[in-house]
Nucleic acid binder design. Sequence first.
RNA 1: GGCCCCUUGGCGGAAUUGGUAGACGCAGCAGACUUAAAAUCUGCUAUCGCAGUGCGGUGUUCCGGUUCGAGUCCGGAAGGGGCCA
Length: 860
Amino acid sequence: MSEGTGRYNFLEVEEKWRKVWETDKSFEPSADRSLPKYYVLEMFPYPSGRIHMGHVRNYTLGDVVARYRRARGFNVLHPMGWDSFGLPAENAAIENKVHPAKWTRENIAAMKAQLMTLGLSLDWSREISTCEPDYYKHEQKMFTDFMRAGLAYRKESWVNWDPVENTVLANEQVIDGRGWRSGALVEKRKLSQWFLKITAFADELLEAIESLERWPDKVRTMQTNWINRSEGAHVDFSLVGRDDSLRVFTTRPDTLYGASFCALAANHPLIAEQAENNPDLAEFVSECNRLGTSEEVIEKAEKKGFDTGLKVAHPLDPSWELPVYAANFVLMEYGTGAVFGCPAHDQRDLEFARKYGLPVTPVVLPKGEDPQAFDIVNEAYVGDGTIFNSGFLDGLGVDEAKSKVIARLGELGTGEGTVTYRLRDWGVSRQRYWGCPVPVIHCADCGAVPVPDADLPVALPDDVDFDQPGNPLDRHPTWKHTTCPNCGKDAVRETDTFDTFFESSWYFARFCDANNPDEAFSRDAVDYWLPVDQYVGGIEHAVLHLLYSRFFVRALSQCGYMNLDEPFDGLFTQGMVCHETYRSEDGKWLSPVDIDRRGADSAFLLGTDKPVKIGRSEKMSKSRKNVVDPENIVQTYGADTARLFMLSDSPPDRDLEWTESGVEGAWRFLNKVWRQVQDAIGAGLPDRNTPLPASFSGPADALRRAAHKALDGATGDLERFHFNRAVARIRELSNAIGEFSPSDDSDRWAYREAVEHLVQLLGPMTPHLAEELWRALSNDTLVARSTWPVADPGLVVDDMVTLAVQVNGKMRAKVEVERDASEENARSAALSHENVQRAMEGKEPRKIIVVPNRIVNIVV
RNA sequence: GGCCCCUUGGCGGAAUUGGUAGACGCAGCAGACUUAAAAUCUGCUAUCGCAGUGCGGUGUUCCGGUUCGAGUCCGGAAGGGGCCA
């Protein structure tokens, strides 16, 4: 404890207790599988080299849960690791000539040291790093098992190709048709790639969303939309003058009589066939390919088509012929890559029809419209209505017409009902070095052969250069040359690596048995620990990471690794950490460390009188320079202050505004608590085991009530992730303690009780200070290992309650009555109050509503 | 364009889920301690009126509704945000 200064010496104290926890192995879970378990996990970080405030918030929230659950008697697993494959390491290699492995390992060491200073209750004995062969060899095994189970397959696929980065981009990495990093115009290219069959679980993934009760609705909606199940039909249009037919997918078979053309994706096989003898069509196809595969870009682009000259016959009326177009808004990956256009009832089709002079025939009549007068001008009608202009479907509703037309198509053999999804199979191949090698050998005779288990891992070679663009694995002189495990002939290794979402799709399972050298994890370990009880992370992973992980537990279950429905039982998505932005007069962004804040709304460049413009609070980002380095905060105020501030004002799911004054407020509070406990000790607290006194003075009773109410309320708040409210209650207790001065032994007994509650409540939030004070109160245990106190219900509810009295709904008085007083007593207490009498102006009450322990409303 | 969410003092937010609006904190003001400052402590702080410690009016973005009673429920509008297009 610090001497002389009268202030809390956090530097000494925080380091001391971290060492104690480490020696004590306080955060390693018990191996006893009969204990109730609780698995708390925060999304593991990419090792960029330094932690940022977003990490501090994320890991503080998780740590509060972990420490609280431990105190509630759970066997808690709270691990940490590194999502350590990925592009930045390769970029560093290119820019700074440092090997990705070296760069990554150094970053991990630096970030780990920073994380250590936060006092997180992590079990570091389970630390994992996904770029190490002892991690990725297991996922290579999984992949070969997926191949054998038919869950991984290879196909030619159109991809977004970034010509500068020389790699495939995901749709979300394409912004306005350009690569998100390089800014280069993205091209469509056809590559042979590996896919994981996530669509095999589309229905299951969709239906199970309903069971994820402890997930935010927002995330559940986003996943539902992402999977986007749609019921519709496959319809076959026979090609005029040929023997084959064109299969289209539609969600609106009821509008088939409104068809005026068919449109095909530019890379539909039929278009490829036609383009061979049609250079103009071929040019159109390559123009479409330049658009990329992003749906958003495609949707925003001008709708263009190219008449192939082919005709198809209408499936319900063979004498009716429709033209066939290649179109830039139809995707080969969705449905069948072909649609029929019904301009009257689809906006895209309408724009297309207007452009190419195609007929627009309305077939759905909105309620109340006259069939003779109803006309489509600039807006397609997509709503409900009655079918008309449609032969045997006339007069039916949309849904009835759908089933009837599907039945008819079935009879005619020209179509059938079907279900499609927007969700597509997950392409996992990346043309990159710093990733997990795809464990496959290509043999001229045997094809793609999985690497046998005994040969795993397929480790990345260390001797690579990054002097040229493209994949260093591919141009490595020896690495890819090997022999076929089947026939023994010369063969080559796959040189692609996995998408880094692969590693993060199963890391939560590895943590259950992180040091298992033989298997990814033992069945026993995952059976006990999974699912994760509380997952905490950013909303940015609402779809991909979380959906892939949900897919993985299903795929792994199918392959016998585990038996699990869902990986994450509870999910919490925290808000961003924001800060004011500053700009100099010439418009340059300025960092908060260079700002001299004077008063509520003026600021100057530090050490000068140059005014600075204060901008609105935005997410901390390097580009706006509004970042505050956690390391500085921890050095200046200590980890507990940073943690407390993270928890104090804003609800965890909302954005948090980082303010210097708020941090100082948290720091002041910690010092106040420290002083309060010193004062209490100075007052001569009774020994810990002193029995409960028979009676208490009025102030002591009030203090005890404050302590038990704070405990009861804060416990409920912690259960419900209302950490900001829990902090408020703790401050209330501190305020009550500050007003108390003991005068006898029973007072001092109550004093100790209140102070101990305060310290224990702070345990999950400011653990270092809590340990220091707990020890100062002559406890020989650790708060980290202590049991959460239980509130005495008799002290949580008061004997007397204040009733609000309203007259005609307006608050007029407050009256004190006994808790659970009879309606009669409440009524007469209310009526006898002088303010109430005055407000009633001598009138007779017409009706009196009494809500026990809350309110009396007198209607006159 | 579609769907969803949000809007409470100068600021962050609270409100037992239909029952005392503004807990707790930040900022501010006043005071105590001090030679002084820092630190700390105390008080005030939605707003207007009557004149002072109480009483009354108004007040949860705006308009309307349901109800004895609405920040909370319903309908509409505005502004902000998110997701999908």
